[in-house]
Simulated scan of single mutants.
Amino acid sequence: MTIIGIAGGTGSGKTTVVRKIVEALPPHHVVVVPQDSYYNDTSAMTEEERHAINFDHPDAFDWKLLIRQVSELRAGKSIEQPTYSYLLCNRLKETVHIEPHPVIIIEGIMTLLNKKLRDMMDLKIYVDTDSDERLIRNIQRDVIERGRTVDMVIDRYLKVLKPMHEQFIEPTKKYADLIIPQGGENHTGIDILCKYIEGVVK
């Protein structure tokens, strides 16, 4: 089994990189474990308290559950992956049944932050994209998918995303085995990465 960690700021193009890797490998060869599925269970909080959570801080994640489930997959066991609703700001009752696969991709903004999780990875990737480009992608995504206004997205970016990125996410670049600039637009880098991974998992 090969475990790959893919990190990078919000809107950096991580999803595009993951998709390219999945497409490059044989069908049913890869399973993706999104870090976004492992936000803490906030059922005991009020709606107001949930909406006040800083989801770009390490404390927002259930690291113990994520590490345990990745360990179980690595041991050949299936897991019940949690699901999370951005609209409710809470974990849902439904889970996703995940079977172990030859390639496990852990994808998220802080995938490389936790040492225990990092130590389980065979390949660590950081998607490094210009901050202006990331802001544009955040505006496009949050307005369309999460019902936010442009002003809301920009305000959140300046007050939360940017400082959290500089404090917690950007520094994890030093742990990466491979840095892919400009996310999904760097086709050459992704192609080289996919060929490398194909060789590793054969």
Rank of each mutant, 00 (worst) to 15 (best):
T2Q: 13
I3Y: 06
I6T: 04
A7W: 00
T10E: 02
G11F: 06
S12Q: 03
V18Y: 00
L25G: 00
H29S: 08
V30Y: 00
V30R: 00
V30S: 03
V32N: 04
V32G: 05
V33S: 03
V33C: 05
S37N: 15
S37W: 05
Y38S: 04
Y39L: 05
N40T: 09
N40K: 15
N40I: 14
N40R: 15
A44Q: 10
M45A: 02
M45I: 02
M45E: 06
T46E: 02
T46I: 05
E47Y: 10
E48S: 12
E49N: 11
H51A: 13
I53R: 05
F55C: 05
A60R: 06
A60C: 07
F61D: 01
D62K: 07
W63A: 07
L65S: 07
L65N: 02
I67R: 04
Q69T: 04
Q69D: 12
V70I: 09
V70Y: 00
E72M: 14
E72S: 11
R74M: 12
A75K: 13
K77N: 10
K77S: 08
K77P: 00
I79T: 05
E80Y: 11
Q81K: 14
Q81S: 10
P82C: 12
Y86L: 13
N90G: 10
R91K: 08
L92N: 06
E94K: 14
I98D: 03
P102L: 04
V103S: 04
I105F: 07
I106A: 03
I106K: 00
I109D: 01
N114V: 07
K115L: 07
D119E: 15
M121I: 09
D122I: 06
K124S: 08
D128Y: 07
T129E: 12
D132E: 14
D132L: 15
I139Y: 07
R141M: 08
R141K: 07
R141E: 05
V143R: 09
R146G: 14
T149G: 10
T149Y: 14
M152W: 09
V153Y: 10
I154G: 09
I154F: 13
Y157H: 08
L158D: 08
V160Y: 01
V160W: 02
K162C: 05
P163F: 12
P163K: 14
E170M: 11
P171R: 12
P171D: 10
P171M: 13
L178V: 14
I179S: 00
Q182V: 00
E185V: 11
G189Q: 06
D191R: 14
Y196R: 12
G199F: 10
K202G: 12
